[in-house]
Design a protein around this nucleic acid. Structure first.
Lengths: 214, 214
DNA sequence: ATGCTATTGAACACTGTGTTCATTAATTAT
DNA sequence: ATAATTAATGAACACAGTGTTCAATAGCAT
């Protein structure tokens, strides 16, 4: 293992490997990428690769870890401003930071999200989202005696899954919708509920009795 | 390619291959499974494997395709009964069929959902969900002039992603919550909205003005 | 300028792949 | 039941990719 991480040669080869690796991931599946491919793309000897990474899985792990570490903490609830007033909630601003962060790290997320062969990336990303949403929901959740514990467990999962689905869809569609529009629709769904957000009342509910039997 | 799909020998070996393949998937990652592993688990010659499948990816594809084909059409909205009355919506019943189908095909979904190395399974499953939810939402969506088109596009993605997230979580937790309880919570979230479902009103909304500027 | 160390490139053994072929065994058709 | 048909076997083969080693060379640091 080439260890001196300050040596210019080391920095240069590692940067070359990681950058060209991302480039290859944008072209073909991780499965189909060989160490030979990476080495020749980065214009280094194949043996040199093994001086820095155990194998291509270890390289992937490194890249993913660094990419996600950079993602952590970037999702920050903040106030959201329209032309003249502050929208009275953190929700829109929160969603906004998420979309902006993804747009900024386009190359990384595109390589990771749409490459058949990077199995657990979405799963790991979801852990990040989940942790954030749990905190966020617990902060908003002021009156603790009223809440249903199961609901408290389920809701962050529901929302984080939904958000990841939306972000992925947004990416697939070349981000043709503005991040602001997306955030605003999410605000509507979250505050009014999916059904009412569509623009219609919920017709099948004749009375206010709770239908669930607990 | 051994072609006669009615020959008993063919049926037997294919069944053995697929069954032991699923078994292996429950034990280790798809990446780490070799054709030799599959052949020896199924107690057949390695060459025989290649008489039926091009490679292990082709086998996976076959198994996934059959498994998902069986899944299609199983998600059927229907009425939902509590002890004495019919809950006035299809939603709970719809969610219920989903959870029940997953419980019934435990082995298959467990192998597919939690194996690092089956990249696009969740994605393909989501396509199924998405199609169903699109239909369902369009059916409920009676007054067509009122709806926001972007919302109409986003909502099925939001909900199908959320549902898959919940089902996966449910699986990971050994399905310790009853399918009925899950369906009922989902009903609450969908009809009342995530925030109100938690048991609290939405405090930060002082007036009824729509905060989004479109 | 000199010592240090990262890189090189070729060689090596190894594992897994996918194909072939003659032989054996099981199934189907008569 | 017997013959004809066809699937399964297992060994052999060439091939591609892996991960390691080693002496020689290049580049960096002080």
């Amino acid at each position: 293992m080439a260890s001196d991480a300050t040596d210019l040669r080391v920095l240069k080869t590692r940067a070359a490997i990681q950058s060209h690796f991302l480039g290859l991931l944008l072209q073909k599946n991780f499965n189909e990428i060989t160490v030979k491919d990476i080495a020749s793309a980065a214009k280094i000897g194949r043996g040199t690769f093994y001086l820095h990474y155990e194998d291509k899985y270890n390289l992937l792990e490194t890249v993913v870890k660094e990419g996600l570490a950079e993602t952590v903490g970037k999702f920050r609830p903040h106030e959201y401003f329209t032309d003249d007033k502050v929208v009275p909630t953190r929700i829109v601003g929160f969603a906004l930071t998420i979309f902006q962060h993804f747009k900024k790290n386009d190359r990384f997320f595109r390589a990771m999200l749409f490459n058949e062969g990077i199995p657990m990336f979405r799963h790991r990303m979801q852990s990040l989202f989940l942790a954030k949403f749990r905190k966020e929901i617990q902060q908003v959740h002021l009156p603790p005696q009223k809440a249903d514990p199961l609901m408290l467990e389920i809701l962050p999962i529901f929302i984080s899954s939904a958000m990841i689905g939306l972000v992925s869809w947004w990416f697939e569609n070349q981000m043709r919708i503005s991040d602001r529009e997306m955030a605003e629709r999410i605000f509507l769904i979250v505050t009014r509920g999916p059904l009412k957000a569509l623009g219609l009342g919920f017709q099948d509910e004749p009375n206010k009795k709770s239908p669930h039997g607990m």
